[in-house]
Simulated scan of single mutants.
Amino acid sequence: MKRLAAALALPLVFGLLSGCSGDDGGDDGSGSGRLTVLAAASLTDVYEEMATGFEKATGAEVTFSFGSSTDLAQQVADGAPGDVLATADQTSMQVAEDAGVTGDVETFATNVLTIVTPPDNPAGIRSLDDLEGATWVRCSDEAPCGRVALAVLEANGVTAEPASLEDDVRATLDKVTSGEADAGLVYASDAVAAGDSVATVEIPGAEHQLTSYLTTTLEQGKDADLAQEWVDYVLSDKGQAALADAGFSAP
């Protein structure tokens, strides 16, 4: 139902924009009609929802590459193709900015860390302290979710070592939903996306270790107008509402 709601709502936002990119794919070379968005793994579900209505409104085709923000930013800095970049922290976006491949950078959401466990919580995880002796996982130190996890653990005096370090937050979540881990540290939005597949344990004070999401168009993009339309939607009231429904917080 959420995907359907997004599909119905987005055309209202983009009705006036659809003429900018056109349905013909820009045969004269002024626009490709195709949009490639490189985005943090934690944006997977909400961005795919947004794309449904965006494609109907603009006649464009949206392709995503989801992964670690750090890896994606380095890829675009090295010249990898793409029209839009969205990262889960400033540190990653700075890599792309320093390379001179970004347009205006906008902050569009924030997120907090939470603990997820299998639905029956077999290890009895009730707080960060319970991670000691449990099989738990988090993101690698290089990924934004890993940097936030390190800050939260340090702030709470937790020294328990994870069973593994994952490439991104979705890989961390998968370890829990597959039953390979007793717990994982993921973003609140990932817990929402997982639904009944996980139980959630909030971390008191986690809001003091917010991570900010930033987005920008890319110099190597093939359709600057279409890329800006996507960024504008993410920043619009409708886009912000979709993000809130997905468990993200306001910028």
Rank of each mutant, 00 (worst) to 15 (best):
S178C: 11
T135Y: 03
E55W: 07
E55R: 06
F66D: 02
A191D: 06
G33T: 06
A77T: 04
G195W: 01
Q220A: 11
S164D: 14
G157L: 02
D190V: 12
A199F: 03
D225K: 11
T135C: 03
A99F: 01
S32K: 07
A51E: 09
D120V: 00
T87G: 08
A60H: 05
L8A: 14
D190N: 15
F14M: 14
T36G: 09
M50K: 03
V186M: 07
A86V: 15
C20H: 02
S164K: 11
G82N: 07
E229A: 14
A77W: 00
L38D: 04
T215K: 05
T107P: 14
V13F: 12
D78F: 12
A41W: 07
G100V: 06
G146P: 06
L38G: 05
G29D: 07
G59K: 10
V105Y: 08
G31R: 04
K222A: 15
Q74T: 09
E202C: 00
T217Y: 08
T177W: 10
D141T: 14
A143M: 01
G59S: 09
G205W: 04
K2C: 04
L8W: 13
V37C: 08
K175R: 14
T135L: 10
G146W: 02
V186H: 11
L4W: 13
A86L: 15
L128E: 00
A149I: 08
G15R: 10
L35K: 06
V201D: 01
G67C: 08
Q228D: 11
E180Q: 09
G25Y: 05
A183N: 00
A143G: 01
T58Y: 04
Y233V: 15
L85F: 06
A250N: 02
D24Q: 08
A143N: 02
G26D: 09
D104G: 11
G184E: 10
S249K: 12
E55V: 09
T177L: 01
